[in-house]
Nucleic acid binder design. Structure first.
Length: 171
DNA sequence: GCCAACGTTGGC
DNA sequence: GCCAACGTTGGC
């Protein structure tokens, strides 16, 4: 990631938090599960895609805002927001043989996968389905809405984030 | 449950 | 390093 390399070289930090979207299957872990978690916080275990991992590892910062998205749901929808409360660290589920996310190529000595911790911020007044999001001009270029997009951690523009939060606040 | 669109693996 | 085969994601 060029921007991240630039930051490493210069020692500069992004002055403003960035915005993200993270997918979860509600049958596995829903926003309600997050609300019930201690301190409304969870480690985002189970990301097993290199591009998604690299976003977490190289670009996510403490305080970054995250849209929580329910995939494989009826309907699939954005359901709320969270905030990054711990930067990327090794995903211990990757070397746990009992975990569904076990990867034999990962170990505590040489972890292959990373995770961040996120804390629930807001649960929207109502879920925002994909068809509803597609109606918004501001969101017409949103990655989530692109055909074939299956990245489980993806960047969101500030404008997209603000629009969705505003929609979620409406009754 | 179907299947398009991806991502990964492994033979060569 | 190519690319076919396979596995996965995720909307519908």
């Amino acid at each position: 990631m060029a921007q991240a390399n630039q930051r490493k070289k210069t020692g500069l930090r992004m002055q403003t938090a960035k915005h993200w979207l993270m997918k979860t299957e509600p049958d596995v872990f829903s926003i309600d599960d997050l609300a019930r978690s201690p301190k409304h916080t969870t480690s985002w275990i189970g990301v097993r895609n290199y591009q998604a991992r690299n976003f977490m590892r190289d670009d996510m910062r403490l305080g970054d805002k995250v849209l929580i998205y329910h995939s494989n749901a009826k309907p699939s929808c954005v359901v709320g927001t969270a905030v990054v409360v711990k930067a990327s660290h090794p995903d211990h589920s990757s070397w746990d043989p009992k975990s569904p996310y076990f990867d034999p190529k990962s170990s505590p000595e040489n972890p292959r996968w990373q995770m961040v911790d996120v804390q629930l911020e807001t649960v929207f007044n109502r879920p925002l389905s994909l068809p509803e999001l597609r109606e918004e001009t501001v969101l017409e270029n949103m990655l989530l809405l692109k055909k074939g997009m299956r990245l489980s951690v993806q960047p969101v523009t500030k404008q997209e984030f603000s629009k969705i939060v505003q929609m979620g606040k409406r009754g």
